[in-house]
């Protein structure tokens, strides 16, 4: 199938892009297109205008300081995977990037595009929620900063207004002493996750985020409480029950999430995880 007709715009500057976004009806921002093009090809979406922001040089830059790294919106997964941009999370970002789709997809897909697409079974929504990243958003009406946890409202739904453009993604530095674990369970390499668990283990505290369980990534508060209250390893059944309470999932899905979380915890603690190589 071929896309329905649209008009194509390729602004050179953010200002020009914002002008187009403000004035055009039924416009959509095009980044790397790795999520949008399949949808256009299948005619599941038919925007009247596409505003291609990949020609805007300003959106390719990154800035780093003590607090973290700010990535331009069109930073590709490949740039993160290959270390062409700094990683403030001690290996978590390149690790996550390497699991996205296939190499040819990572060469074009962008970090901001993935967030704007808002699919909780993709890597960035969960990883960047766990790291408490934020997006910088601009429109002709002004600028704002939206934490990723507040940006993602549902499947394909975000807090972005129609005239707003994500210009950068700001990822805070992972605190000293925090160890991360990430387990993606998918049927095949490159597939979207069936479960995606991120654990951040600090002395006295464990934070757990789960993707592919609900329409947005969820923090497993109940599970964290159960873990905090337990001494020694926790039984998978008990973990599954807590995750069920956190996510509303049941049966096989709940089991899968429990295994992902347990393995992510083990990875964060530096334990050998059987099978983690297969699913990561």
């Amino acid at each position: 199938m071929k896309p329905a007709e649209f008009a194509y715009h390729r602004p050179d500057s953010v200002e020009e892009a914002l002008g187009l976004l403000g004035e055009l009806e039924e416009a959509k921002v095009l980044g790397g297109g790795q999520s949008l093009l399949p949808i256009l090809n299948m005619r599941l979406a038919a925007p009247a205008h596409l505003i291609d922001i990949t020609g805007i040089r300003a959106l390719r830059r990154f800035e780093e300081d003590d607090s973290g790294v700010r990535y331009g919106a069109v930073t590709t997964h490949m740039m993160i995977e290959d270390g062409l941009v700094p990683d403030p999370a001690r290996g978590l970002l390149p690790h996550a990037a390497a699991g996205i789709g296939y190499r040819a997809v990572r060469n074009r897909g962008t970090i901001a595009g993935s967030l704007a697409h808002s699919d909780s079974s993709a890597e960035w929504p969960t990883v960047l929620s766990a790291l408490d990243a934020a997006v910088h958003v601009r429109s002709n009406r002004g600028d704002r900063r939206i934490p990723v946890r507040e940006l993602l409202l549902g499947f394909f739904t975000t807090a972005l207004a129609e005239d707003e453009l994500i210009t950068a993604v700001e990822v805070p530095r992972l605190r000293e002493g925090t160890r991360w674990g990430m387990v993606k369970m998918a049927r095949k390499p490159g597939e979207f996750a069936e479960s995606l668990a991120i654990t951040l283990v600090r002395p006295g505290e464990t934070e757990i985020w789960l993707g592919a369980a609900r329409d947005v990534p969820v923090r497993l508060a109940e599970t964290e409480t159960v873990l905090a209250g337990s001494i020694g390893p926790i039984a998978l059944e008990q973990l599954a029950e807590a995750i069920g309470a956190d996510t509303g999932s049941s049966g096989y899905e709940r089991q899968r999430h429990a295994v992902a979380v347990r393995r992510a915890l083990e990875t964060a603690r530096g334990e050998t995880v059987r099978g983690a190589e297969v699913h990561v």
């Binding site: 089991q255 899968r256 295994v259 099978g275 699913h279």
Partner: peptide, 9 residues
């Protein structure tokens, strides 16, 4: 076979 997930290699 992974007894926890049913994964088969």
């Amino acid at each position: 076979v992974d007894l926890d997930t049913g994964d088969v290699r």
